[in-house]
């Protein structure tokens, strides 16, 4: 990856992470761990130019679609969309509050730039399958990205969707699994072991790439190769660190769904900013 681009994406990811922490602290509840783990991938998707989208026209007909199937990680989506210009950044502090355009889980009718409402795990990938099928039917050459959690892969519906995407040869669908290894009650290997993840998807007929989800060279290579795959859907298994960027949150499952208080917020932001030194 071009070094200037990488620098820019790294800075965007830091800004996204800071916004995630700020908005969760203001909300007093929400999900930091799985938002921070996927921040680098969001930075790449929205700021590298890979997506055909237009913040001035969120409903543009031939736009690429992004489905946050792990809907509880919406702080990362909201921070990214605000930064991209879909709505004013000042909205972020209204997260989860009555009347806000930023619901506790993504709502396509309230938040500009959200392509589908999600939150009940397992459903988003199926929605993405429907989008990809619809696009194919119209010979509309768009891409559909679906961000799936590794804990979410416990849901049977995920595998129904995986099977159907392969059956219909949806090469316009790219799933990205945020493999952070944790779910609410503990490590995925202890709660419900979904390994080996890549083998599962590939045995269902998907082309899989395994990457470090915080390494921009690998993210770019996987997404670009993924887009060029023909005849089958693509799954990028992104190994990530839950809570990435905030030392005291990293790999601690209690930070799945706990918001930082003011003191923790300062410490978290200082951690995030240290990463650029």
């Amino acid at each position: 990856m071009d070094s200037n681009l990488k620098k820019m994406l790294e800075q965007k990811a830091r800004d996204i992470r800071v916004d995630i922490i700020n908005m969760l602290c203001a909300a007093g509840s929400g999900h930091p761990g799985g938002s921070l783990s996927i921040a680098d991938i969001f930075s790449y998707l929205y700021f590298s130019g890979i997506l055909n989208i237009d913040p001035a026209d969120p409903g543009k007909e031939n736009r690429d679609r992004v489905v946050l199937s792990k809907g509880h990680a919406c702080p990362v989506l909201y921070a990214t969309l605000a930064m991209k210009g879909y709505f004013d950044r000042s909205e972020l502090k209204t997260l989860r509050k009555y009347g806000s355009i930023l619901q506790g889980h993504p709502d396509m009718n309230k938040t500009p730039g959200v392509d589908i409402s999600t939150g009940s795990l397992g459903q988003g990938l199926s929605c993405a399958v429907g989008m990809a099928l619809g696009a194919k039917l119209d010979k509309n050459d768009i891409k559909v990205f679906a961000i799936v959690g590794d804990g979410e892969c416990d849901e049977g519906q995920i595998w129904e969707a995986v099977m159907s995407a392969s059956h219909y040869r949806l090469d316009n669908l790219i799933a990205i699994v945020d493999l952070n290894g944790l779910q609410i009650d503990g490590f995925t290997k202890d709660i419900m072991d979904t390994s080996p993840m890549a083998e599962k998807w590939s045995s269902f007929g998907w082309k899989t790439f395994e990457i470090d989800g915080h390494n921009y060279d690998m993210i770019e290579e996987a997404v670009k190769k993924g887009i060029s795959v023909k005849g089958k859907p693509v799954c990028i298994i992104a190994r990530t660190t839950k809570g990435k960027g905030v030392a005291f949150m990293e790999n601690i499952c209690d930070w799945h769904g706990t918001a930082p208080d003011k003191e923790q917020k300062e410490k978290a932001i200082s951690d995030i900013n240290k990463a650029c030194l």
Binding site: E61, A132, Q157, H167
Partner: peptide, 19 residues
């Protein structure tokens, strides 16, 4: 969609977003 009603129902939602 084969014998998989959950997937079909959510996929229908996806179709609807595509017009």
């Amino acid at each position: 969609f084969g014998v998989a009603e959950s997937n079909m129902m959510s996929a229908a939602a996806g179709f609807a977003t595509m017009g």
